[in-house]
């Protein structure tokens, strides 16, 4: 070492660093949910460091039309932690564009975790399940995240230069915040009036859904879906949590599948990248 020049020293240092890093990221062939007392709610929570990572290869959704013809997101890196009653996943993928503003022709970044309702050998189809074999989907969206993070619920929050002369439901003699006023506002927002979960404003950036095949996605019973997504230079890091799959005891397995939409690539609905079923192991006592 005494006579090592600076170049060699740098190379050795880099190797040591790489070794240290690769030691930090333990890669597994399946998604392994480690046990922890607290469920991490934030993507940067220290608890994630202890969980191994599964890098799931993604393929385009090419079963139902409209299909995604050009592959985009190559892989999603998944970690999981359980506190015995709930399970949290952290999904990370590369996407330098942050797409979280809804609008005509503008799609939102999003991701989802899919788990069969029942633990059984004969699995539902990985593409949204099938009749008689229900899948539970927990779905996160970037535009919901922006609204949870504090973006307001007016057109000015989306288009800062917008001017609007008149909304009939915000005009006199209706008192602001009165029942009559709210009732009238609903008439001009039919999706909200019907309670469509898709329409904001939102308190959580995720929703519980169920499906029995492509095109059947609908509101599911609450599995306590929560989540939080943070965008950095390279891409998204998103935590999605929900109840532990029913009957999944310690050291038992079920399956999970993942999907990612890149808004910047105009992906939404069936235009998405997805994985097949990946074994999901609940580790622990």
């Amino acid at each position: 070492m005494k006579h090592m020049n600076w170049k060699t020293a740098a190379a050795v240092a880099a190797l040591l660093l790489a070794a240290a890093c690769s030691k930090q990221v333990e890669r597994t062939q399946e998604v392994v949910a480690i046990a922890a007392a607290q469920l991490p709610a934030d993507p940067s929570d220290g608890a994630w460091a202890g969980a191994p990572e599964h890098a799931a290869k993604m393929i385009p959704q090419d079963l139902v039309e409209p299909r995604l013809m050009t592959p985009t997101t190559a892989e999603v890196r998944v970690r999981a932690v359980t506190n015995g009653s709930d399970i949290a996943f952290r999904l990370e993928w590369d996407d330098p564009d942050q797409s979280d503003t809804p609008g005509p022709s503008k799609m939102s970044d999003a991701c989802a975790v899919q788990i069969p309702e029942k633990i059984e050998k004969d699995l539902p189809d990985p593409q949204m399940g099938k009749v008689g074999k229900l899948v539970q989907v927990t779905y996160w969206r970037a535009d919901w995240q922006a609204s949870v993070n504090g973006r307001g619920d007016t057109i000015r929050d989306l288009y800062p230069n917008a001017t609007v002369d008149h909304y009939p439901f915000e005009a006199k003699p209706l008192e602001k915040g009165s029942e009559a006023q709210k009732e009238m506002a609903k008439r001009y927002a039919p999706a909200r009036a019907l309670g469509n979960v898709r329409s904001g404003p939102r308190s959580v950036p995720v929703e519980d859904l169920i499906a029995t095949g492509p095109g059947t996605l609908s509101r599911g019973p609450s599995l306590g879906a929560k989540g939080k997504g943070v965008h950095a230079k390279q891409g998204w890091s998103v935590v999605i949590s929900r109840k532990l799959p029913e009957g999944l005891g310690p050291n038992q397995r079920t399956n999970a599948a993942f999907a990612v939409w890149q808004g910047g690539q105009r992906e939404s609905g069936s235009r998405k990248m997805r994985t097949g079923w990946i074994p999901l192991l609940r580790k622990g006592q």
Binding site: P104, G200, G269
Partner: peptide, 23 residues
């Protein structure tokens, strides 16, 4: 669910996406 496939498909462009209701 606001996928906007109908907006894309209608040749007369008579479906509109509402960014506030997401539909």
């Amino acid at each position: 669910r606001g996928y906007q496939e109908c907006v894309r498909g209608c040749p007369y462009k008579k479906v509109f996406f509402n960014p506030m209701t997401g539909t």
